[in-house]
Simulated scan of single mutants.
Amino acid sequence: MGGVTGGAFKCDFGGCTAPPFQTQYLLNSHANVHSSNRPHYCPVRGCPRSEGGKGFKRKNEMIRHGLVHDSPGYVCPFCPDREHKYPRPDNLQRHVRVHHMDKDKDDQQLRDVLAQRPEGGNRGRRRRT
């Protein structure tokens, strides 16, 4: 194993700058980024990303999305439908910074969202023993 770089499977989509892929499978997976196809759907009935809804281009995106159904969730207080729910506070904070730039920095709800920290306190870091 080790020092293998590049691959034999190059994307031929016009203007694509992706490096060649190691396998046909990886190239096929990559090809979805150039398509409007969204063949992977959330299995949770009623989810806007389930069958008949928006779906996902890649299976791993659908799997990652499943976290919103399995976690307590951090809900955007600014979206009228309360549909935007994130598994971690940093995901919600990114959403708020991108989609709600119009909020006054002194808005108490905005300050509360930006101050949220993950449950558990250590934020994913291991403690030395």
Rank of each mutant, 00 (worst) to 15 (best):
S71N: 11
G53V: 07
K59D: 03
P87D: 10
G46V: 09
D90F: 11
D90N: 12
M62P: 01
Y41N: 09
K59S: 04
N91P: 01
R49H: 15
P77F: 10
Y86V: 07
R64C: 04
V44R: 02
C47F: 06
S50G: 09
P48D: 14
R94T: 15
S71H: 11
K59W: 01
I63S: 00
R58A: 06
R94I: 14
C42D: 01
D70R: 15
G53S: 06
P80R: 06
C42T: 05
I63A: 02
R45N: 13
H69W: 01
C47V: 06
L67A: 13
R38M: 07
G52Y: 09
R49N: 12
P48G: 14
Y86M: 09
K85G: 01
E61P: 00
R58S: 01
P80D: 10
R58G: 02
Y41M: 08
E61H: 12
E83V: 13
E51M: 04
P89I: 01
P80H: 03
K85P: 01
E51W: 01
L92E: 00
P87N: 04
E51F: 07
D70T: 14
E61A: 12
V75F: 07
H40T: 02
E51V: 14
R64H: 08
M62L: 10
K54D: 12
P39Y: 02
K85C: 11
E83L: 13
P80N: 08
S35M: 10
D81M: 08
R45F: 11
G46S: 10
G53K: 01
R58I: 02
H84Q: 15
C76D: 14
C79E: 08
D90M: 08
C42H: 03
V44G: 01
D81H: 09
K54C: 12
R88M: 10
R82T: 10
